[in-house]
Simulated assay, not measured.
Amino acid sequence: MKNEQEIPKEYCPYCGKNLIRVLSKQEQKKYNLVYVSEKIGISNRDSIIAWECPYCSKTWKREF
């Protein structure tokens, strides 16, 4: 990465793990993305109401 400041940081409020993953150069070309969020959205029929950490499996409410 030329400029590390372009990549946002997002941490799990429970385990503190960074939930943003920088894609490999191959994935960047394939998906036209530089990074992805690894947090899991929990939704009702209309919208995301909470998030789950893929590392510690704890959930927290989405802030609107």
Rank of each mutant, 00 (worst) to 15 (best):
A50Q: 11
N32V: 10
R62K: 15
P13I: 07
K39F: 12
E52L: 05
G41H: 07
E4L: 09
V34Y: 03
S37Y: 13
S24W: 01
N3Y: 08
N18D: 15
P13Y: 06
M1K: 06
Y31F: 13
C56K: 05
K29D: 09
C53I: 04
E63D: 15
N32I: 10
P13W: 06
V36C: 07
C12V: 03
G16N: 02
I48C: 14
Q5T: 07
S37W: 10
G41E: 13
K30Y: 04
R45M: 05
L19N: 02
N44C: 10
D46I: 13
N18R: 05
N44Q: 02
K58C: 10
S57C: 12
Y14S: 07
I40R: 02
E10G: 04
S43Q: 09
S43W: 04
K29I: 12
Y31P: 02
E27V: 00
Y11W: 03
P8H: 05
Y31Q: 06
K9G: 00
C53W: 05
G16I: 01
N44S: 11
W51M: 03
N3K: 09
K29N: 08
P54Q: 12
I20Y: 07
K39G: 00
G41S: 12
R45C: 03
R62C: 14
A50P: 03
G41T: 06
Q5P: 00
E38G: 00
E63L: 15
G16D: 00
E10C: 10
Y35K: 05
L19F: 03
S47T: 13
R45E: 15
K61T: 13
S24R: 01
N3A: 03
V22S: 01
K58V: 07
I42C: 09
C12I: 02
I48A: 10
P13V: 04
Y55I: 14
E52C: 08
M1G: 15
N32L: 12
Y55W: 11
L23Q: 04
R62L: 15
K61H: 12
S57M: 14
P8R: 06
E38Q: 10
K17A: 09
S47N: 10
K9H: 10
S43D: 05
L33I: 01
